[in-house]
């Protein structure tokens, strides 16, 4: 599914990613842990095509297609979804309108028929219910005045409705209490499947108790410093990132 090879990227001419390689096959969930400043968020922005993140070497493909040649909306239409660490507030656009516009833009880009308003409402209602989101909240401008936890849940709702193939969760656990965390994790786990893959970026092991990864990678100083099974996350929890930071 996703293949990253020798990726180098800079922000304002400062190298952040320095030769990162990673293979995430379909059906797998990979977690990336790492200290602050290791390049975790940069990786998520490079993969989604944010302006200002310049790839200087290497590449990334999704099912063999060069991801980096596409604009952010084209990547989204191919199924790349980033759950933001800090979801944006969009004043003046009701959440429902925003999500429907996004979904139909994606469908149009893929040559699929757009969803009618009743079809969409049915889908949104169903997904909101499963994530315990008050449907009335979806009539309010997206994320405006929402708590941190509500914003994260709104990300997962969008994920559930847009049904992406490759999911990137950037610090999705931050700002969540334990109940909200469970709801979010359930929502994410519901999307696990043989045709999907996920990259879970996190600071702490805690999220991984709920979203069990197949593989765990340590990102330090812009490259993968170690890879292993779920036990690696537990080891990091005990011993910290020091030895990787030193090695880097």
């Amino acid at each position: 599914m996703l293949s990253i090879s020798n990726l180098h990227a800079s922000v304002e001419d400062k190298p952040i990613l320095k030769g990162l390689s990673l293979e995430i096959p379909a059906g797998e969930v990979h977690a990336i842990l790492g200290p602050n400043g290791a390049g975790k968020s940069t990786l998520s922005y490079v993969l989604t095509g944010r302006e200002g993140y310049e790839v200087t070497q290497g590449g990334a493909t999704l099912d063999g297609e060069d991801l980096l040649a596409l604009d952010p909306s084209e990547r989204a239409a191919r199924g790349v979804f980033l759950s933001f660490q800090y979801p944006l507030e969009i004043p003046g656009v009701p959440a429902l309108t925003f999500i429907r516009t996004a979904l139909n833009a994606q469908r149009k880009a893929r040559g699929e028929a757009e969803l009618s308003a009743p079809e969409f409402l049915k889908l949104a209602r169903e997904k909101a219910q499963s994530l315990k989101i008050d449907f009335d909240m979806l009539k309010r401008p997206l994320n405006v005045g929402f708590s941190g936890g509500e914003k994260k849940r709104m990300e997962i709702l969008q994920m559930a409705i847009l049904s992406p193939r490759f999911l990137i969760l950037d610090e999705t656990d931050s700002g969540l209490d334990i109940d909200a965390l469970k709801i979010v994790a359930d929502g994410v786990n519901a999307l696990r499947g043989p045709d999907r893959a996920m990259l879970v970026i996190t600071h702490y092991q805690r999220l991984l108790d709920y979203i069990r990864p197949d593989r765990v990678h340590v990102l330090a100083d812009g490259r993968i410093a170690a890879s292993g099974g779920p036990e690696l996350a537990l080891e990091l929890e005990r011993e910290g990132y020091d030895k990787y930071a030193r090695a880097a």
């Binding site: 990547r75 944006l88 003046g92 996004a102």
Partner: peptide, 26 residues
Amino acid sequence: ALFYAMQRGLPPEAARALLTEAFVGE
């Protein structure tokens, strides 16, 4: 906000139009 909207699938022009309309919508 533009990047956010594009990440969700809105092409650049549509993202701009949506945010501009929202700005005036108030």
